[in-house]
């Protein structure tokens, strides 16, 4: 564990807390893409199958349980909570996300490190995580105005990926640890998807103005 990896995990955790805070305090999920949240739930469930087969550390186990349970809870809130679900922007959140699931499943069946159930699921979850933010970014762009907590949620999610890249570079030099190329390529793609968002986020931060994305 190095400082970049820890910062990455913490920004990931903060992003989820910010999202829960938004839903809890405003009793609203406007601006939040259910499609993206469903994809994250699928990502965590398929990636953390090793919870039942391998023990790495208490930290690792706790984080995995937190990620799986929080993502399921968020999906539940948007779909079923009697107040929260009323604010769901259904008409704006039309991304055909199951196509992404299908494409990533095919890719994982073709490109993986080892042909085993767990390894194919792991590769699938890495591919899917890389593109899971797309419905959210499309929703934000369509709605134009982005409220503060939603903007911060996406910002922390992007920061998490950026820290993971620094972590891989650090591990390469300090531990001669080669991060698997599937992770590296997907991680770079995932981070790049945030580039546009980051650009507008920093402009609004610099000007101390509300975050607006161009149509």
């Amino acid at each position: 564990m190095n400082v970049f990896r820890f910062a990455g995990d913490m920004t990931h955790l903060i992003s989820i807390l910010v999202l829960l805070l938004k839903i809890y305090t405003t009793k609203s999920c406007s601006g939040i893409s259910l499609k993206t949240q469903e994809l994250y739930a699928v990502v965590f469930v398929t990636r953390y199958l090793d919870l039942v087969t391998d023990f790495i550390s208490v930290y690792n186990t706790v984080m995995k349980v937190v990620f799986i349970s929080s993502s399921l809870a968020i999906v539940w809130c948007i779909r079923r909570h009697k107040v929260v679900r009323r604010s769901y922007d259904k008409e704006l959140d039309t991304f055909r996300h199951w196509l992404l699931v299908g494409a990533c499943a095919v890719l994982a069946l073709v490109v993986h490190e080892k042909f085993s159930f767990q390894e194919v699921c792991w590769a699938f979850s890495i591919y899917l995580e890389a593109v899971a933010i797309l419905p959210q970014l499309v929703l934000l762009q369509r709605s134009g105005n982005v409220d503060n907590l939603t903007g911060q949620y996406v910002f922390f999610l992007g920061a998490y990926r950026a820290f993971y890249i620094l972590n891989w570079i650090y591990r390469y030099y300090s531990e001669q640890h080669f991060t698997r190329w599937i992770s590296c390529v997907s991680g770079i793609v995932q981070t790049a998807l945030y580039a546009d968002f980051f650009y507008y986020y920093f402009i609004s931060w610099k000007n101390n103005s509300k975050l607006q994305l161009p149509a």
């Binding site: 990896r5 090793d50 790495i56 690792n60 990620f67 792991w122 993971y164 080669f178 991060t179 698997r180």
Partner: peptide, 10 residues
């Protein structure tokens, strides 16, 4: 290189 099957990152 593919060293072990354990994924130590989240």
């Amino acid at each position: 290189s593919y060293e072990s099957e354990i994924h130590d990152e989240l």
